[in-house]
C-alpha cells in the first residue's frame, strides 16, 4: 500500500544534504523518514530538511526529526528545517519544538545560511 509519503535526497557539492519529505509523515511512513534522515546525518555534512510539501505530520514524524537532530549534534554537524508547511509548523509549535530547531523560511535561505 502507498504510504502517502515520498522523499527526495540531494547531495550538494558543498557536502550539504537536502532531504525533502512530502505528503503524510505518520506512524506508517515515519520509519522511512527516520531512516532517510539518519542516513543523511551519518554523511557528516550539514542537513537541510525541506518540509514545504508535508501535508500532515504526527508525533512519530516529529520524533524522527528530533532523533536526527540529536544525532547531528552528537556528530558535530547541523540539521536545519526549511520552508516548513503550516501543518508541520502547527505541530512543531504544539510540541514546543519550534525553538529547538533552526527553521529557515525557504530552502534557499537554509542553503545560503548554512554554507
Amino acid at each position: 500500500m502507498n504510504t502517502g509519503m515520498t522523499h527526495r535526497v540531494e547531495r550538494r557539492q558543498t557536502g550539504m544534504v537536502v532531504v525533502a519529505l512530502e505528503g503524510d509523515v505518520d506512524l506508517q511512513s515515519s520509519p522511512e523518514a527516520r531512516r532517510v534522515l539518519l542516513d543523511a546525518v551519518a554523511h557528516g555534512g550539514a542537513v537541510v530538511v525541506d518540509l514545504s510539501k508535508v501535508g500532515y505530520i504526527d508525533s512519530s514524524g516529529i520524533a524522527s526529526l528530533v532523533e536526527a537532530l540529536q544525532k547531528a549534534r552528537q556528530g558535530g554537524s547541523r540539521l536545519v528545517l526549511a520552508a516548513v508547511s503550516d501543518a508541520a509548523m502547527r505541530v512543531l509549535q504544539l510540541a514546543r519544538l519550534d525553538r529547538v530547531f533552526v527553521i529557515h523560511p525557504s530552502l534557499e535561505a537554509a542553503i545560503t545560511g548554512d554554507r
Binding site: S59, A63, V66, E67, Q70, L94, A95
Partner: peptide, 18 residues
C-alpha cells in the same frame, strides 16, 4: 515534560493540547 527532548511520548501531550 516538554523540556525533555526525548523522541516519542509526545502523542499524549498532543491529544490533550488539541
Amino acid at each position: 515534560d516538554l523540556g525533555d527532548l526525548r523522541p516519542g511520548g509526545l502523542g499524549t501531550h498532543l491529544i490533550r493540547a488539541l
